[in-house]
């Protein structure tokens, strides 16, 4: 393979991984845009999505579009429950404590998964099949295309939802000032639940897309959650275009480092680069700098 088509090949695989990171990053963004905390259970939503799908698709033999929908709703419900039961009962507004409640939840969810689905990895067949597409000497699988397409579909929908729809605007108002939002009569608690539902659903979507490629085990979501978090920080935490840009950039960067330098040092480079970006631009690529009020 020539140097340029090799580059293209790495670019494709990087974009595919990047689209998954971006989907996970979007889940972080959705929560940031209402509750303003980091939900470290986001990666576990992905794992849950994968496992629900294996159950619906393989054990219950539900046709895949319906099984996918059920999985998305089921994980959305889990997200809703996390906010409704755990976070809303918390007797504090300290973000760090709330974040560690989600970390507790993440460990708890992994415990549940081990209990219900066991420790063995599972997999289900790809949702679409077909010959890979050849492009300038590199090949792009149909699954990669699907992942990219779904990724862009989700960000477009979310962007429109937050910028145009009333509920989206309400969510942003809650993020901006929960107290003011409550004063003008917005159902703050409900809106927070909605954003966790959305985060769960997004996690499930990412799970549905990645599991046919890599399989799923109880800790699949941990490292993907981390990469998604890194992607959203890289792009500017809370920004939807930033999540996509950060995810794709991280994916491509990793793929290029792995391909041209060393696959082992891939993660060292990825995180060292992230470190440098933060040192130069403390609020990420698309982040807005907020001045502190006196």
């Amino acid at each position: 393979m020539s140097e340029s088509s090799l580059f293209l090949q790495f670019l494709f695989s990087g974009l595919t991984a990047g689209a998954i990171y971006a989907l996970v990053a979007l889940g972080f963004c959705v929560v940031e845009n209402s509750l303003r905390i980091v939900n470290f259970a986001q990666g576990d939503f992905l794992t849950l999505g994968g496992f629900f799908m294996t159950t619906f698709l393989l054990s219950l033999k539900i046709p895949w579009p319906l099984a996918a929908l059920c999985s998305i709703l089921a994980v959305g419900l889990c997200g809703y429950l996390l906010e409704r039961i755990a976070l809303r009962s918390a007797k504090t507004h300290d973000p760090l404590t709330l974040i560690f409640i989600t970390i507790g939840a993440s460990i708890f969810i992994r415990g549940l998964i081990k209990l219900f689905w066991g420790k063995n990895p599972r997999i289900f067949p790809p949702l679409i099949t077909g010959e890979p597409i050849r492009l300038l000497g590199a090949s792009l699988t149909r699954e990669s295309l699907l992942i990219l397409a779904v990724g862009f579909f989700c960000v477009t929908i979310l962007h429109l939802f937050y910028r145009v729809s009333r509920s989206g605007k309400a969510l942003r108002a809650v993020a901006y000032s929960p107290r003011a939002a409550a004063l003008i009569g917005l159902p703050v608690g409900f809106l927070n639940s909605v954003s966790f539902f959305l985060a769960g659903a997004l996690g499930a979507v990412a799970g549905l897309l990645i599991v046919p490629v890599t399989g799923v085990s109880f800790d699949t979501g941990v490292i993907l959650g981390l990469k998604g978090y890194a992607a959203s920080v890289l792009g500017g935490y809370g920004s939807f275009p930033g999540a996509i840009a950060g995810g794709l950039l991280l994916g491509v960067m990793e793929a290029l480092v792995a391909g041209f330098i060393s696959s082992g040092f891939r993660d060292v480079f990825a995180f060292a680069l992230l470190f440098c970006v933060l040192a130069i631009k403390p609020s990420g690529l698309f982040g807005t700098h907020e001045e502190e009020r006196v």
Partner: peptide
């Protein structure tokens, strides 16, 4: 079997009720 459940649940519980 229940290790993660208990650890995670305990961490959540303490932080929720005794921040």
């Amino acid at each position: 079997e229940y290790r993660d459940l208990i650890y995670g649940g305990l961490l959540m519980g303490v932080l929720i009720f005794f921040p």
